[in-house]
Amino acid sequence: MSAKPMDWVQGPWTVELHTISRSTYDGLRLDDVVFPHWIISYVQEGNVRTGSGGEFHRVKAGEVMLHPPNLPFTEHADGRGAHLWLQASILCSHHLDLLQLYRVSPVVAIPEPVKFEKVFFQLQSAWSNRKQSFRDLKLTSGMLQLTEQILAGWENAGSVERSEAYESEGNRYARLVGHMSSRLADKLDREQLAAYVRLSPNYLDRVFQAEYGLTPMQMLRDLRLKHSRLLLQRSEETLESIALQCGMNDASYLCKQFKKHYGMLPGQYRELALSAQAEDLYGGTAGGVRRHYR
């Protein structure tokens, strides 16, 4: 069993929530609105026409609109409606914007609307009560649950990527990371990566490192090693096969890079991972084969 192309996206997770509200209206006309963070707007009631960059979509109850940061958008509705909406950022490892990496389509049908609404109102309650115990934990947990619902709906619809109409100039480096992550098995060099974003290799190295703390090639190496680690945990494939899937020449090169990065050989890592998965704290075998309770 191989990891999915985007399974390398891992924590630590950071949630930055800036606004959360339920809004109602008798008619709606928002033109060229811009926010510095993602606007996630779930249509609880009504029908909306939304657009950006000359591209327009119809949105009905049970669907969510995703408006990228710093990109003008419109929302029009002739009748009554209600939206559950928030302004937020969801960041993963290397402080990468999750919704930029996954390139989620601008309108997504939520698979479990009742659950989505319940989690939203729990999140809103935690946001409103600044003295609530474990508030930050509840905010992060709630936001990730909503995000999981959005990603599940996107996957159910075929994971169709948003068009360039929903891309701003500042997203080009996140697009590059997404490009690399979907081509981990390919032979990519500095010139190819620079050509993808229409920059010179030296300039790209400087601006990308200023953004993420790594050059593009260093980021590509890290993505490949994370992907190899997932394959070691989740599959029985040979080291040679894993090396090829991660854009490395052979098992020997994978072993060298893996040990340099993680301090152990891939085989040792797999053995430790499988041992941890099989161990039962209470003396049985993982999976419920045997238990010894007293």
Rank of each mutant, 00 (worst) to 15 (best):
S275T: 12
S228D: 12
Y102I: 04
P36L: 05
N249W: 11
H179A: 06
S163V: 04
A195I: 05
A77F: 00
S168N: 13
K226W: 01
W8C: 05
T14C: 09
P111F: 11
M180C: 09
N156Q: 12
S41R: 03
L151C: 01
G79E: 08
L274D: 02
Y282I: 07
C246R: 01
V177H: 05
S241P: 01
D189L: 10
A273I: 02
Q277I: 07
K256S: 09
M264Y: 03
L274V: 08
L84D: 04
R221Q: 12
R175H: 03
G142C: 13
D32L: 09
P36R: 03
S200T: 15
D205G: 11
F258H: 10
P5L: 00
D7R: 00
Q257D: 07
Y102Q: 15
N70C: 11
G81S: 06
L223F: 01
A185F: 01
C92Y: 10
G53R: 11
S252H: 13
T285C: 13
V107K: 05
L176K: 12
I39W: 07
G51R: 08
R58T: 06
P201C: 01
D78R: 14
C246T: 14
G267K: 08
R175L: 13
Q209I: 00
W8I: 06
E237T: 10
G54D: 00
L214F: 03
E55I: 02
Y262G: 04
R190E: 13
G11Q: 09
H57F: 14
A278G: 06
D186F: 08
A194W: 08
L244K: 15
Y173T: 08
G62A: 12
V207T: 11
D250K: 04
D7A: 12
G158N: 08
D186G: 02
F258S: 01
V119H: 08
Y102W: 07
V107H: 00
T147P: 07
N202A: 11
Q124Y: 14
H227D: 14
G284N: 02
M217N: 04
D26E: 15
E112P: 00
I90Y: 05
T24Q: 15
H292R: 13
F35C: 06
N202H: 10
D205M: 04
R234V: 04
N249F: 14
P113V: 05
F208R: 14
S275A: 15
R29V: 09
E191D: 14
P72Y: 00
